[in-house]
Design a protein around this nucleic acid. Sequence first.
DNA 1: CGTGACCTTGAGTAGCCTCAAGAACTGTGG
DNA 2: CCACAGTTCTTGAGGCTACTCAAGGTCACG
Lengths: 254, 254
Amino acid sequence: MSVQEQQTIAPLTGIGHRAPRLRAVGTQTQRAPESTLRPSSMPFGTDTPLDWREEDLVASDVYVRKGAVLLYRGSPFTALYVVRSGSCKSVTTTPEGQEQIAAFHIAGEILGAEAIGDRVHDATITALEDSEFCAMPFDRVQALAQKSHDFQRTLHATFAREIRRGRTLARWLATMRAEQRLASFLLDLADRYCARGYSSREFVLRMSRQDIGIHLGLSHETVSRSLSSFHRQSLMRVRGRLLTIIDRKALQAL
Amino acid sequence: MSVQEQQTIAPLTGIGHRAPRLRAVGTQTQRAPESTLRPSSMPFGTDTPLDWREEDLVASDVYVRKGAVLLYRGSPFTALYVVRSGSCKSVTTTPEGQEQIAAFHIAGEILGAEAIGDRVHDATITALEDSEFCAMPFDRVQALAQKSHDFQRTLHATFAREIRRGRTLARWLATMRAEQRLASFLLDLADRYCARGYSSREFVLRMSRQDIGIHLGLSHETVSRSLSSFHRQSLMRVRGRLLTIIDRKALQAL
DNA sequence: CGTGACCTTGAGTAGCCTCAAGAACTGTGG
DNA sequence: CCACAGTTCTTGAGGCTACTCAAGGTCACG
């Protein structure tokens, strides 16, 4: 598992994030030149020229080490964040102490939209590996949305995607059995890696079996057993956290 | 079950919806005088005077009979809708035909936000009783959001609430057992009725056991058994679809 | 007042959880 | 570079929750 699939990385231009280094150290980010939001939130197509620039938006870059926290639940909401490199998880907690992982986020994706109406974040964001984020102060976001129609659409589309993502998760949980949930989760992750220019066939799971289990409403033993089962059936190859999808169709058919 | 809790209804002024009539007939809506969005999407408090008016936004009212469809999945997205009176369900369908009820909506709530980025709706909206909706063409919504800072905040808060709602459902499904899910669902429903000026102690379930089951990832038999169990324990009184919450604390404690 | 949809309850079973123990991996310090 | 400690992962056994199937009762509506 020491070798990562760095060969297959084909960074999109203007994506505003960089490929994660194998063992990131505390270097500071040089700012990506173009729109950070564009590829992750412009399903309308990138042919529309944008009339705004990242410089109007991004205030600062934040570097977070593996296992460290970017945002605590309950902390005041001031900015949206984009994952520049690395990955993280959003953990919500019930008053009773029940944990739920609302989402995993990989490079290029946007965090914090759920906090807008509340003034405080409802999830604790923890880095799954050494990661970089950039902060977009929300007053600037709102100001820019009022100036730029393009940006407004982009922003609204980002919110809408977040809503659909939550509904998709709920559908997995409500209608699927353990192996189906896991297959859906892994294929979704593959698609998201693909959309960011990584391989959709082979990737490294940055989260533990435990985290996957919490996210999908399963015990970590069931996650492990299901992965072993997939491996045995030659639907995928699983070696620790390195995962290679072999029979995509069969996984979809579950 | 012939008697509804009309006595307890205390319609908020300016809420933009009216109390559901017991047996609504095809009367046309007279437009409510004030902001439709305000109470359902202004968690910042209503003390802030709004600098926009409903007339700028609402194009038309739609009347939908019980069981009829307001919007089909896949139909083009042109407008957001507000439930003026009545209630409805949002049903998403997987390619494989798996149904999931993403949400139930009662009077005062907003529909369709998830469709923004996609240009098509991803849920079929069906009325649970004779209901009225008003359409807000999305180009007008966007135009108004650019003119009015108040309205922009209101709109963003609406999106954010929708995101949190999805995450809450996912948390119920991932972490709770059947009775806990059902209790959470019913208490949430009670809170929402309360927020709209209805009784939070006694209300009529507009949806079938089957629908509740699909929403919560349970069989309708389990929903029925759990309700009977709550009744037996005197946590609530259940008579058909009329529900009276007796021991709120015990339900929360589950 | 009849018909169809909805609801309730019971019996048996499957899927997943819990508990448990050992293996593999990760990271750290010698 | 290796040994060790802690974490993560895997696999097995047994039990419980909630599902499926089934049948009878109740309610809504024409």
